[in-house]
Amino acid sequence: MERPVKRLSNHSECRRASCPIQNYVSTDPLRHEVPVAPLGRASVETPTRAQALLRTIEPYLYLLPALLLVGGLLLYSVGHTLAISFTDWDLITPPRFVGLKNYVDAIRDPTFTRSFTNTLAWTAGSLLLPVGGGLLLAVVLERIPGQRVLKTLIYLPAILSTTVVAAIWSYVYTNNGVLNETLRWVGLDAMARPWLVFAPTNTLAMIVASSWRALGPSMVLFLVGLQTIPPELIEAAKIDGAGERILFWRIKLPLLRPITAIVVIMSVIGSFMTFDLVWVMTQGGPGRSSETLAVTMYRQAFIMWRMGYAGAVAVILSTIVIAFSIFYLRATLKRSAL
């Protein structure tokens, strides 16, 4: 594939094939070629053995704080969660080993099944609305005047914290809230309803609220992706007579694959972790009807004090997310072969 290059050399007559590679910087965002310092300066000093040793371990010293943080906070927590998922720990009495009981209990629990279904709804919803919608908006906004203002407006909700988003949408969804009043005002009285009370409407309503916030960031990522598509390719396709639809399906979408992979994976992981919005808007209720797996985990841990059961839910949740991520990234990135 032809890669556009930006010329840094003073030799204006220098042709691409004959120029030293370090004089070029790739504009491909996925392939940074950092210009190498001119030869000579570093090789003048001959380092002593101690200096050489220091130079060898220096990069690791820089990594050490990050490694300690990851090791201490992540790996320890993962190990600890896994360990307590086989116990009946309640925070105040010493944990007892109970084998796979927590996992069996979870799988047999109808509430766990409902949380699982709700979580799948969240995943489907967040693929459809923020990912699909973000792509559509990016493609449309790229070509219309005034896009800067529109982009800002669409991105704006993303700067709000989830709690604020939840509070705003709670007002939208209450019985005499913005949504119902608007529906009644335009004469659609039959559509007005208590949005957060009955399943599955409450979960769907919260997915919409969450998408309102997630739309902007995914749109921006797709816009960045669209800008990295070489204009020559678009031009060439246009010269060959490709219409907008062909351009989108045959040129833009395939070339957006790396960005799409990132947006999809972030959305899916985010949807599996859905907690804060649900916790603020319905606390998983009423009657546990809008719980997601993360809410179930929190409830079991910090309301029922069944740390072992909560640990088992956490392990199941993490396993699904990790398995999906590996499978999806392998499949997508292999195909894009960049």
Partner: peptide
């Protein structure tokens, strides 16, 4: 239940 059915209680979600 009879009191609920008689409409003596506020509707779910009326005040959060």
């Amino acid at each position: 239940r009879d009191l609920l059915d008689a409409g003596y209680f506020s509707q779910p979600g009326d005040f959060s």
